[in-house]
Design a protein around this nucleic acid. Sequence first.
RNA 1: GCCCAAGUGGCGGAAUGGUAGACGCAGGGGAUUCAAAAUCCCCCGCCUUCACGGGCGUGAGAGUUCGAAUCUCUCCUUGGGCACCA
Length: 854
Amino acid sequence: MSRYSATEIEAKWQAAWKEAGIFQARRSADKPKYYVLEMFPYPSGRIHMGHVRNYTMGDVIARYKMSTGHNVLHPMGWDAFGMPAENAAMASGGHPKDWTYSNIATMKEQMQPLGLSIDWTREFATCDPEYYGQQQALFLDMLETNLVYRKNAVVNWDPIDMTVLANEQVIDGKGWRSGAEVERRELTQWFFDISSMAGELLEALDGLDNWPAKVKLMQSNWIGMSRGIEIPFERTDGGEAISCYSTRPDTLRGASFLAISPEHPLSRALAESRPDLAEFIAETRKMDTTEAAMEKAEKKGIDTGITVRHPVWPDQELPVWVGNFVLMDYGTGAVYACPAHDQRDLDFARKYDLSVEPAFHMPGDSSPIETEALVPAKTEKVVYIDHFAGLDEATSQEGIDRTIDWFEARNLGKAQVKYRLRDWGLSRQRYWGCPIPVVHCEACGVVPEKKENLPVQLPNDVSFDIPGNPLDRHPTWRDVPCPSCGAPAKRETDTMDTFVDSSWYFARFTSARAETPTEAEDAAYWMNVDQYIGGIEHAILHLLYSRFFARAMNMTGHLPESAREPFDALFTQGMVTHAAYVNAERKDPHGRKLYHYPEDVTSDGAGHFTVKETGEAVLVEPSTKMSKSKFNVVDPLNIIASYGADTARWFVLSDSPPERDVEWTAAGAEAAHKHLNRVWGLCDRIGAMDADATGEGDEDLLREMHKAIRDVTLGVESFGFNAAIARLYGFTNVLLKSKAGAAAQKQAIMTLAQLMSPMTPHLSEDIWHHQGGEGLIALAPWPVADEAMLVEDTVTMPVQVNGKRRAEITVAKDLPKDEIEKIALAERAVQRSLDGNPPKKVIVVPGRIVNVVA
RNA sequence: GCCCAAGUGGCGGAAUGGUAGACGCAGGGGAUUCAAAAUCCCCCGCCUUCACGGGCGUGAGAGUUCGAAUCUCUCCUUGGGCACCA
């Protein structure tokens, strides 16, 4: 059989689509709109299989929606600011801008052959001044609305690269790039007030019915709500009371000391006259804050000498300690410790010889606390010891609730809801990011740049030969007159976190060239994103930030109220993985594993692999995410060159469910290509048939066709792409074996081409064209299953005896239950199983099954 | 430690209360061919049987049901998220 020329037909149909301009989105009142978006790429320089899978899924949805009468918006852009561009500049002496735009050009060129239905007229890069200028306008509006503010904060500081690092960029206490010991430094930084929206961001998750439960749960945990109480503890020396937050006030009887954070105002005040305390605080600052280090870090403290009164039993005096384990930015930065019912408090109490008093014990067991704290589940009943709220035996949850009521009734404390979510620090001491549009004036303080002066553009004449932020040492860029008083002032040299750029790009796509961040009519028409598709790795940060920004943009008049939740449906797709081949005989010169590219390895067909050139034995490592370091990257361009884009698209959608990882295998790609060739070959067969000749089984073929329409439609609509593809294999197999007449076969293959068209758009166009289909298949209306054709006259039902299948009967579709029962019982195999005894009971589910209970 | 998800042939997976293993890969056999590639046809969960058939089978154990991969409980394993959060 001749193979079809993918290169030829793919280029041909891409040109036809372009010519017809069918992917350019315009507002229209005639059709319902549909906005499908894939998370836009970082322009690293090359597209990879993960991109192919992500964009193919979006394309399937976009093309399907287009053929079901929707006005589709399917845009693409570039998340273009970020450290890799600066690192490349540092390494090779180029400019981040050149590096980025040249990568964009390359990647765009690599994406073209995939045949995606993208509206390229809306393309932008976040490093375009036209984009980041609008982002600066947004920033100024948010500043006015108090959604962004400046404060002192302790941050991770890399002393060699001279920049702030995000927590994720600190590995084992060292800067991920420089390897320098990271210091904790207090800096004045800009923050988005995302924590004020914590409650709403949490509650609104409930309404996101078309988001994966997993993502909602992750966000919910991240926001981390807790209910508790804030209780002031009076100081015996008359100083300001110390307020503590607790979620377990029912343990208050066991309070033995207070622990306050080293960053607590009281600690700082005391440190001024207590050198030992000052030293302790400085030491804590140096402490590594990574998880692993926290686990090992010793709980240390120092006695302040101050004492407070117990709020319920005022004659009890509790010492106040500074504890290195108390966080300043959660709760009030001060806790009361109850060693009997908290393991950490107990360890601390034993170490510094502080008292351990239980607040309750388990029913029938009042043995004293030794080295293990008693921490019952909240639903477990405990016996409270001389409890103030009149509790005796109750669950901890009841104890907590009643204690809070008791305190509130006496005005001794206040019920509080707290969130783990902290404000989003957006300042970065980097060059390649969006400049923060403010000016620092000695007389006026922080002055926002005037909107007419936007964009505040990055200067081009910068160098990366010395560490630090080039904007800081630029000779002229910083020096500007104060927008308010005109006196000489300094521009802010920090730029924005690149997560800001990706937090509103979806809104910008609705009017990509507007002179304002968005344009009201366009935003109202196109928002929300109907289907958003991307990786699970963005489950928290990007998606949470975008939800915050959509709200902020609504508050500042840039998005309608209805767009406060910007993504109606979210789908998180899995990765493309590949086996890795590691040399079994030697290591690389650095003593590390030596990997080989899949194409350099050959198999003997019996599970043994060798390096083609040297014949060395190779071990196959389990499939993992494609990465350069493991040499297991398959370049989409190579695949497209040898098989065509349709094969690549077909393969990444087949086999695995889209939310799971899919393993790329050469055999799988080959099989996909083989199948597309088989479909292609059908065209020849039908072309060679006598158009008027009749065949056998026309109706059977058409019935199968309508079933395929039903199943594939359902599969595409429910993200069951693998199932839809399996169904298409099935229908193709039926068509290949069919002896139906030319007319029926022609109808079948044209429908097959349509059903395949979201996945294999080029091949489908070509078949459509060959069979005389009108216009472009991309614009043809999606086939609809004929209900009447789906109904068969007879049904085949299994017959079970005691749940085991014994026979199969074929009966008329609407045969009454008792008739079906008679036929089932008459079956020889059923009789044999019954062994002559009458059945106890017979269950007949018409059209489904018969179950005989012996 | 807390929270969540998933365990089905040699492999990816299908079936969401009704014939377990669709579809694809790998494997076996055959046709075609001088030969190979390509292509086409047949077989393919495990045990047992010449065969017909029979038994077992969805991580393990129990339960609900006429009927469970699917629902419930306990346990095991793997993966993910969070974690000095008071």
